[in-house]
Design a binder for these strands. Structure first.
Lengths: 159, 159
DNA sequence: CCATATAGGACCATTTTAGTCCTCTTTACA
DNA sequence: TGTAAAGAGGACTAAAATGGTCCTATATGG
């Protein structure tokens, strides 16, 4: 399914909620109410977002969370990475994890390119985009740095 | 992580293996050897691929699997969908599954656009691309049908 | 009829994920 | 200076997804 985890999903919703009122600090309790999720879960999500630097937290009474950057400077990729770790479609997408099939694999290079393209795509989507509830329709060409095309085998399919 | 499941990964490797010798029928046993994975697992993967129409199977002795279409006509999206089901980053990406947060969510529309973009990207990558072991470097602009840009809030980030 | 294949599904072990809870620390303010 | 409100961090459990194996049935060629 190539699905985001629920927590990541929550994170996006919560971040969007905060982005719509970026001046004030928001408490977990308050956000839980607005977003209709249990308080402990929202709390956990907020902590993860704060730990990876997307939110700044203030403790104590009158505490809460604020965005650490403007909504246009926080990307979907940032949010996903905050909850799920580095984005990559295969085990071998990030340098360190050695895959024991590497020699017989034969598709690793190209999967990595695809991964990179997905990453780039997600870096182009900002929290500002996500938070906007009724978006204008302005199709744009996104700067995907593409998969390589082996001229000998196939052509890009048309759509 | 936005990761493919292991089975999907295997599927890609296996499909690529078949694509490199598309004339002959390949048995599970043979492929398991080439790809260095246990036979039952390879068998299971092949069955799934056959059931969703990417492979054609011949039973009995001298049986095995062949591609049902040319490598240029089988996409990464097809392979992923064969193992994991329809591609979508959120629960609400496919029409039927109703999400109980829809009213308080506020990001559903835009996630669906992002999902669509990822899907389009994966439809542009063919098995021919994946199977190619040492690909040429030909950057192309992929026809991603883009996320909408709310003019009032943010601009696309530069990369 | 027998050896070789796939089809289909049951089954279990392991891992991942979701969700809760507890204790500690920080802060504002009466 | 005490107290209430907030977050930090981590332990823990239950549930779900995943990976992997195996068994029986069916098809096919020789």
């Amino acid at each position: 399914m190539l699905k985001l985890s629920k927590l990541t999903d929550y994170a996006a919703v919560i971040m969007a909620q905060i982005a719509r009122d970026p001046e004030q600090a928001h408490t977990a309790t308050e956000l839980a109410g607005q977003v209709n999720l249990p308080h402990p879960t929202v709390g956990k999500t907020l902590k993860m977002l704060a730990r990876s630097g997307l939110l700044e937290s203030r403790r104590g009474s009158h505490g809460g969370y604020v965005l650490s950057r403007s909504p246009a400077e926080i990307t979907a990729s940032d949010i996903i990475a905050a909850i799920e770790g580095p984005i990559g479609m295969t085990e071998c997408s990030h340098a360190d994890g050695e895959c024991d099939l590497l020699d017989t694999c034969g598709v690793a290079d190209n999967w990595q390119r695809v991964s990179q393209a997905v990453r780039t795509l997600l870096e182009c989507v900002t929290l500002a985009h996500l938070a906007q509830s009724s978006p204008l329709k302005l199709p744009v060409q996104l700067p995907i740095q593409s998969v390589t095309l082996p001229s000998s085998i196939g052509a890009v399919r048309e759509h």
